[in-house]
């Protein structure tokens, strides 16, 4: 049996409570998503974020509302929540309904909310990083100090497009923070077969600041991403952060995970669950009581139930809506 050492809480109590609450919000929302998907209410397929909640919440908390997030990898819903997209809009989008964030045109892999500076997702893994460089360029041209944060999984770092984005960001020292969520598995291909010791080493040839952190520790991710954002805002250019997380869920719902070692999987669940660990830590440091956490959970369950109700009651799109949003019309000068 692995013994947890008591760890300090290095953020103020309000922030610590917010971290736990936000991680629980992701977890409870996703558990409900899994149920609704299992019951056939959600079309398509869903990838859940179990084990990545600390990374998502730490990153989200490090950003200002005005900073862009271009999400990547396959653990998406937690990132949408961490960027502040309301739960009902996310759930309705998973359901493919008109009140979804994307009016049902996108679904789980494409939640976009440009008003909240959520760019969305390049569902072809590894194609979101060059757009993130473009978002940073736009902010620079407009003279703001806003930055672009972009995530990718360990698998996506094998795409040439990821490395091109590093070249372009470094070329103009653009304010981009590349966060690699290394959960050890590109579906069934282990990251340990990749050659770098740390995937953040991919920033080294570009002379970027790099750091590899325990991504199951929300505070570590918060600190590392905050530092990288600070550098980017101060004109010190892009950074690459490896957030080492553990995938505590299948790649997608339905993946039988025949490729995983069961004993190792159980050990990781015991040791690396970001929510359970942080919960213990806040209790041990007297930041929260069991009762307060129970209230927090109950409140979130209510929020999630409301999101499901909202999604269920939202109408299905009219079939003709499939033809909307292909072009903004009239085209320039057309019909004048």
């Amino acid at each position: 049996m692995w013994e947890r050492m008591t760890q300090d809480v290095n953020v103020d109590d309000d922030t610590a409570r917010r971290f736990l609450e936000e991680m629980l919000r992701i977890d409870i929302f996703e558990e409900e998503t899994k149920e609704r998907f299992g019951d056939g209410e959600i079309p398509g397929f869903v990838h859940l974020s179990g084990g990545h909640e600390g990374s998502h919440v730490g990153m989200g908390a490090a950003m200002r509302d005005e900073d862009w997030l271009a999400v990547g990898g396959a653990r998406l819903i937690g990132q949408y929540i961490a960027k502040g997209v309301p739960l009902p809009e996310i759930m309705a989008e998973l359901y493919g309904r008109v009140d979804g964030s994307n009016r049902g045109h996108g679904g789980q892999m494409h939640v976009a909310d440009v008003d909240r500076k959520l760019y969305g997702h390049a569902a072809t893994i590894g194609s979101g990083q060059n757009p993130a460089v473009g978002l940073a360029l736009a902010e620079k041209v407009k003279g703001t100090d806003n930055v672009a944060v972009t995530t990718i999984g360990d698998g996506g770092t094998s795409r040439g497009s990821f490395h091109t984005a590093l070249v372009f960001a470094a070329y103009w020292d653009l304010p981009v923070v590349f966060v690699i969520e290394n959960n050890q598995w590109a579906i069934s291909t282990p990251a340990e077969s990749l050659s770098p010791d740390s995937l953040s080493d991919y920033g080294d040839p570009h002379n970027m600041a790099t750091e590899s952190v325990d991504g199951s520790d929300v505070e570590e991710v918060y600190r590392a991403v905050s530092d990288a954002i600070e550098r980017a805002r101060n004109g010190e250019g892009p950074s690459v952060i490896e957030s080492r997380v553990v995938r505590l869920v299948p790649h997608f719902e339905g993946d039988k995970e025949t490729y995983r070692d069961e004993a190792e999987y159980e050990r990781l669940k015991e040791e690396k669950d970001p929510i359970e660990n942080y919960r213990e830590r806040l209790l041990e440091n007297d930041v929260l009581t069991e009762g307060e956490i129970e209230d927090m959970v109950a409140n979130i369950q209510d929020e999630v139930s409301e999101a499901v109700e909202f999604a269920r009651e939202s109408p299905e799109p009219e079939p003709e809506a499939a033809y909307e949003h292909v072009y903004r019309t009239p085209l320039y000068g057309q019909g004048e």
């Binding site: 978002l135 736009a138 407009k142 091109t164």
Partner: peptide, 28 residues
């Protein structure tokens, strides 16, 4: 040079950056 920029040799970078810059509110 802020308005007219040479890029490194990668169409992936050029096209991908154009997409992000456009979404970000400028007209690449």
């Amino acid at each position: 040079r802020d308005r007219v920029r040479n890029t490194p040799l990668s169409e992936i970078g050029i096209a991908g950056m154009a997409l992000g810059a456009a979404v970000g509110g400028i007209r690449p």
